[in-house]
Design a protein around this nucleic acid. Structure first.
Length: 435
RNA sequence: GGUGGGAUGGCUGAGUGGACAAAAGCGGCAGUCUUGAAAACUGCAGAGUCCGCAAGGGCUCCGGGGGUUCGAAUCCCUCUCCCACCGCCA
């Protein structure tokens, strides 16, 4: 959420920001409620002040009868105002939590995803001297992806990853962990793109995949609720990304400045209901209810957060380059940005089976939007407290990365070559997936 | 699932109806001493929110919510989490 003081002082800018982002938010109503709220807080404060004075007197006096009467009267007045404040505050908070984040200067203005801007491309679009197949077909022919049987036992949009596909998943995990936990490798990445950030390595984590509604809401990730799997018997949600539990890890905590940046690389399954995406990407495993993902989460000082995101994107690119997959880096425009985002950058990877780029990575810079809700702060060296800035980003969405590998590395004979860097993580240094 | 014990500031921990924003210790910051550091000594230090240009002042906060009372860290109810033991279990 935004600082209410900021909204008070920048009413028009906040309104315009909502418009740019296609998010409906009644800012006038919010400020009207804000005024009421402050007035009530003042009135209640005055009554309580009187009550406290009365209590002081009470200690000195022997005959307390009159004072107790006075106290009762104050109590009555107080009881009248309390529910009023509660009501106002509830609506106030509901609107306040809906107000989207401000945006970075370099976020493109646009209505919808058509306004997104390609910032750069890497790699050649591969040319085949045969008709390249889609991953679904390849997966079936090679007996590495089984969708029909998954449909039988779990329903649509599920899959069994088998044989080399299952092994590829673990190879990708090992590959990513070996890079992100190695400070020297990270130093190399920083040097190559000329950034000025710490090379501190990422802490590997396997986080919980169920989360309580409170922390989920404070991550600004509970909505859209219809997108979440929910276990009512225990009042828990299944996470849609490791970000949800990783980001909430330090809620209600104060981090020391010298411990920042704090970087995590989490591995977890991600669960998505994909409500409202009927008929979209129904072939293959591009859009599924359950997939495994490696996710980066970073907490840093406010002044470093843009550079931190640039670093994170550089890591994403390094990972994709290591697999020799062609991609484009896309700056997401105002109309397509997630509500909590200050700046969002996606990576889209070339999929020969679809003959186009598809999203494989996203990188969200939230600034203090989440940390203000989560109450995650940093104690600066001068003793002052500030909200930390938070970044989250995909390292590998494993399903989609496997799609990219098998489609880009397919051969005329229907086999798939395994990217060189992954072979050492495959049993027997496997080079090729064959029928 | 059962029984018992807990949750107090950055940390440890005292506090069982008005004296308590809360002892003490550790840690932090500043100073004295020192060539410098350590030690010792002295002093300063919670967070949130509201009013105010500011100086300053008010209110709230002792795990969360509710209640009793003129008044609650303290009494009652409830929830959550933690610890110990038992049971079950990968």
């Amino acid at each position: 959420m935004l600082d209410i003081k900021y909204i008070r002082e920048n009413k028009e800018a906040v309104k315009k920001n909502c418009e740019l982002r296609n998010i409906k938010c009644d800012i006038d109503r919010l400020l009207e409620l804000d005024e009421k709220r402050r007035k009530l807080i003042g009135e209640i404060g005055e009554i309580k002040e009187k009550r406290n004075e009365l209590n002081e007197e009470m200690k000195k006096v022997k005959d307390k009868k009159d004072l107790i009467e006075k106290g009762k009267e104050l109590k009555e007045n107080l009881e009248k105002l309390k529910p009023e404040l509660e009501k106002v505050e509830k609506e106030w908070k509901t609107i306040l939590w809906k107000v989207p984040n401000v945006i970075s200067d370099d976020t493109p203005i646009g209505k919808d995803e058509s306004g997104n801007k390609v910032i750069r491309k890497w790699g050649e679009i591969p040319k085949f001297d045969f008709q390249p197949k889609e991953h679904g077909q390849l997966g079936e022919e090679l007996d590495i992806i089984d969708i029909p049987r998954a449909a039988k036992v779990s329903g649509s949009r599920f899959n069994f990853l088998k044989n080399e596909a299952a092994l590829l998943e673990f190879a990708l995990i090992q590959h990513a962990f070996s890079i992100l936990t190695n400070e020297d490798t990270l130093k190399g990445v920083i040097k190559e793109v000329g950034l000025d950030v710490s090379a501190k390595s990422f802490i590997p984590v396997v986080p919980p995949v169920l989360i309580k509604p409170g922390p989920m809401e404070r991550m600004a990730r509970l909505e859209p609720r219809e997108e979440r799997y929910y276990a009512p018997a225990d009042d828990l949600y299944l996470i849609g990304s490791a970000e949800h539990t990783l980001g909430a890890m330090y809620m209600d905590e104060i981090i020391k400045e010298e411990d920042l940046p704090m970087r995590f690389i989490g591995f977890s399954t991600a669960f998505r209901r994909e409500a409202g995406s009927y008929g979209k990407d129904t072939k293959g495993i591009l859009r599924v209810h359950q997939f495994d993902k490696l996710e980066m989460e970073s907490f840093c000082l406010p002044e470093n957060s843009i550079e931190e995101q640039n670093f994170i994107v550089a890591i994403q690119e390094y990972l994709m380059q290591s697999l020799r997959l062609s991609y484009q880096v896309v700056a997401i425009c105002t109309g397509d940005l997630g509500g909590p985002d200050y700046r969002q950058i996606d990576i889209e990877t070339w999929l020969p089976g679809q003959n186009r780029y598809r999203e494989t990575h996203t990188s969200d810079l939230m600034n203090d939007y989440q940390s203000r809700r989560l109450n995650t702060k940093v104690r600066k060296k001068n003793g002052k407290l500030e909200y930390v800035h938070m970044n989250d980003a995909t390292a590998f969405a494993i399903g989609r990365t496997i799609i990219a590998i098998i489609e880009n590395y397919q051969q005329a004979d229907g086999s798939v070559v395994i990217p060189e860097v992954l072979r050492k993580w495959m049993p027997g240094n496997l080079e090729k997936i064959e029928k």
